[in-house]
Computed example of a mutant assay.
Amino acid sequence: MEALLRPIYQERASDPDTLGIIWVEKREEVSPITDTFDSILFILTKNEEQPIFTKHYTFHNQKAALHIISEKQLRKWLLLGTNPKLVDWLLNGRVVFDRNEFVEEMRRELDDFPINGRKIRMGIEFAKLTRRYLEGKLFFEQLNYLDAYNQIVDSLHHLARLAVFENGMHPEVMVWKQVKQLDPSIYKLYDELVSSEESLEKRLELLFLASEFLIHSRTKDGAHHILEVLATKDHWTIQEIHEQEELKNYSVDLEVFIEFLIEKGFIMIEKKATKSTDIMHRYYKVEPK
C-alpha cells in the first residue's frame, strides 16, 4: 500500500506549506488507532484556510486514509485532548518527510509536556469531571440510576485521564490500559462499577462515595490553571471569564466548574450595586497568593 501511495506523499512533500508527513500502519486486526484502516497518511501543513482535509483510498482488500491537518488545528486538538489518537500517530508513526525538523520538535514537546500545557489540560479535564459527577449525583438522588450510571462512567474516564496527566503523560486511545499501570485505585473503581454483581443502586452508591474523596483530593491541582488566571485581576464578570483566551477552552463546563469552586471555597463572590435596590451584580474573585 505504501508503494502505491508514495507518489501522493512525494507530491505533498514538494508543497512548501507541508511541514511533515507521517505513515501509520494498523497494529491489530481491528485498530482504533487507525479508525480500522490498514494505513494512515498523516500530513501536517501551515495552510489554515482548510484546517482539515481527508481522502480515502482502496486497493484490493486494503484501505488507507489521508488526513491533512493544519498546525493550528493540530495544536488545538492536542490542547483540548479531543483527538487522542493523534498523540499515537505523532509519537509512534514513521516519519517520511520532516521540514526543518518540525515533526521532531513536536515529538519533543509531547515528551516534555511543559508544565503550563499540563495545567491547562488538567483544568479542562477536571471541569468535565465535575460536571459529569454533579449531574450523575443529581440523577442518582432522583433514582434515575441508568442516567446516573452513564454520567459516573464518563466522570471515571475523566478521572483516569487526570491520573495520566499527573504522571506527565498524554492519555492514549486505550486509556484504561495506561491507568491500570499508573493508578490501580482508579482502575479498580471502574472495574467494580462495570463488573460487580451488586445491584446498580449499590454500585453507584459506593462509587459516589469513593469518587467524592478522589475528586476532593485533586481539586487544588485540577483548579490550579483557572485560579491562576483569575488571580491576575481584582474581579471578573462571567462574560469576561468566558472571553478570556485561555479560559475559552473550558467551553460549556466553565460555569458549572466555577460554581463548584465557589462551593469549595476557592473562588469568592463579590456583589456590586445595580440601578435596582434589590438586584446586585455578581463578580468573581480569587485572593492572590
Results as ranks from 00 to 15, higher is better:
residue 1 M to R: 10
residue 6 R to T: 10
residue 9 Y to M: 04
residue 9 Y to C: 02
residue 11 E to K: 15
residue 14 S to P: 07
residue 16 P to G: 14
residue 17 D to E: 15
residue 18 T to I: 12
residue 21 I to C: 03
residue 21 I to F: 02
residue 22 I to A: 03
residue 24 V to A: 00
residue 32 P to S: 13
residue 33 I to D: 07
residue 34 T to K: 05
residue 35 D to M: 11
residue 36 T to L: 06
residue 36 T to V: 08
residue 39 S to G: 10
residue 40 I to N: 00
residue 41 L to K: 01
residue 44 L to M: 12
residue 44 L to N: 05
residue 45 T to M: 04
residue 46 K to D: 11
residue 52 I to N: 13
residue 53 F to H: 13
residue 63 K to Y: 04
residue 63 K to I: 06
residue 65 A to Y: 05
residue 65 A to C: 12
residue 67 H to C: 09
residue 67 H to E: 14
residue 69 I to A: 09
residue 71 E to D: 13
residue 73 Q to F: 11
residue 81 G to E: 00
residue 81 G to S: 06
residue 83 N to W: 08
residue 90 L to F: 08
residue 91 L to N: 06
residue 93 G to N: 06
residue 94 R to E: 11
residue 95 V to P: 00
residue 95 V to L: 06
residue 96 V to M: 12
residue 96 V to D: 10
residue 98 D to G: 09
residue 101 E to K: 10
residue 101 E to M: 11
residue 102 F to E: 03
residue 108 R to I: 08
residue 110 L to G: 02
residue 110 L to C: 00
residue 111 D to I: 11
residue 111 D to R: 13
residue 117 G to M: 00
residue 119 K to L: 05
residue 121 R to V: 05
residue 122 M to T: 04
residue 124 I to P: 01
residue 128 K to R: 14
residue 134 L to C: 03
residue 141 E to A: 14
residue 143 L to N: 14
residue 145 Y to E: 09
residue 157 H to W: 10
residue 160 A to H: 01
residue 161 R to Y: 13
residue 163 A to Q: 13
residue 165 F to L: 05
residue 166 E to T: 08
residue 166 E to I: 04
residue 166 E to P: 04
residue 166 E to D: 11
residue 179 V to W: 04
residue 181 Q to I: 14
residue 181 Q to A: 15
residue 182 L to E: 01
residue 183 D to M: 14
residue 188 K to N: 14
residue 188 K to H: 15
residue 192 E to D: 15
residue 198 E to F: 15
residue 202 K to R: 15
residue 204 L to D: 02
residue 206 L to M: 15
residue 210 A to I: 10
residue 210 A to N: 11
residue 211 S to A: 15
residue 211 S to L: 15
residue 213 F to D: 13
residue 215 I to T: 09
residue 215 I to V: 14
residue 221 D to N: 11
residue 224 H to Y: 07
residue 228 E to I: 00
residue 228 E to W: 00
residue 230 L to F: 03
residue 232 T to H: 05
residue 232 T to L: 05
residue 233 K to N: 02
residue 234 D to T: 10
residue 234 D to N: 12
residue 237 T to N: 05
residue 240 E to D: 12
residue 248 K to F: 06
residue 249 N to P: 00
residue 249 N to E: 08
residue 250 Y to G: 01
residue 250 Y to Q: 03
residue 251 S to I: 04
residue 251 S to C: 05
residue 265 G to W: 13
residue 266 F to S: 07
residue 269 I to S: 01
residue 269 I to T: 04
residue 270 E to S: 08
residue 272 K to P: 00
residue 273 A to C: 06
residue 273 A to K: 13
residue 275 K to C: 03
residue 277 T to Q: 10
residue 277 T to M: 11
residue 278 D to T: 14
residue 284 Y to E: 02
